[in-house]
Design a protein around this nucleic acid. Structure first.
Lengths: 182, 182
DNA sequence: AATTGCATGTAAGGGGTTACATGATTCT
DNA sequence: AGAATCATGTAACCCCTTACATGCAATT
């Protein structure tokens, strides 16, 4: 039982209000992207399963386009709360970049420089988005009271991405030196 | 083709010298644990597959205990180098802690404090191990010339774990305040 | 008229963990 | 003698991504 957290992402998002599977996916892609991801292949079957378990309700729109709006039930809220109380499982991270850095001796220094620079760029871009998201959140008057919690989540991303970028800077310097040594 | 990087971990480690599957697992568990993981269920079948593909050779020990020592072939080295040159794929990270922080409104503040403190503790311990590993590396005379590269990998862990711990400190303060507000 | 976005869903297949099975060797 | 560690391997099972299929609605 490594995971099975898809259900809790769904339940959690539905506490903010009813949504479709498509909406949920969008929110995850945009707001959660730096710490979470889900695919339709996980989401849609799970929405069905949660409906069967009565943790959420499904309402199919009458008329033209098929659209299913899901809402959380009291049982769903209880299940979410139960999970929230459970200890966080040890996450298994996998950094391909570090693997390559570890084996850097088997390739050229320029290859590694490219990898580190690419890593730096993507995370610098990510940081920009996080900063934008932070500003956006701070500007709008608090409609929901989870604002402050979300800011903490964003702060995590900012700190960690900052650390990544720092490391990349140092490592690029190191690689530059290494190159001239050889 | 999300992954399939197990093979390159094996090839990479075997560049340092011949090893058994058991050895490889140990090295990954101890030295790579903060950025990589592998299970026997992945390792052993992959060792067989790599042997079939002639990227590594297998030598079974004669006598008592069954032990298979693997060594990299020139083709294996070439395959590794080829992979090293390929761009690093976007890693998909999943932080259950952040998911819970995002939905913190649905539970008690003390619950979140526990989670954050646990996260802080495990990574503080991890940081100690990383510092030890760094000292150890710096103390022994460089037998292999990959020392400096490995130090860079360790530095990544130190920086990122430092960022985690920082964030935990801030977040614990935030949660403390939040608790007294309510 | 065509493209993009909205919207739901399934099937196949790969990646990965866990649990189990088996047995030798070394340490206490 | 018993426990821990060395050592290899398999099978079941789950999680997850990718690719595909389908079709409506809004935009350009």
């Amino acid at each position: 039982m490594r995971s099975g957290k898809t259900q809790y992402v769904i339940l959690g998002l539905l506490t903010e209000g009813p949504m479709s599977g498509y909406d949920i996916k969008k929110v995850i892609d945009i707001r959660f992207s730096f710490f979470w991801n889900e695919s339709y292949g996980q989401l849609y079957p799970m929405l069905k399963a949660l409906t069967d378990k009565k943790l959420i309700t499904a309402e199919r729109s009458s008329g033209g386009r098929t659209k299913v709006t899901y809402a959380i039930t009291p049982q769903g809220r209880a299940a979410l709360k139960e999970w929230l109380a459970k200890p966080v499982e040890k996450e298994t991270v996998r950094f391909e970049l570090l693997l390559k850095m570890y084996f850097a001796g088997e390739t050229e220094t320029d290859v590694m420089k490219r990898h580190v620079r690419a890593f730096m760029d993507t995370h610098a871009q990510g940081l920009v988005l996080l900063n934008l998201f932070e500003q956006e959140l701070k500007s709008i008057v608090r409609e929901h009271d989870n604002h402050a919690d979300v800011l903490r989540v964003i702060a995590f991303g900012q700190k960690v991405y900052g650390a990544y970028i720092d490391w990349c800077g140092e490592t690029l310097d190191y690689l530059e030196e290494k190159k001239h040594e050889a």
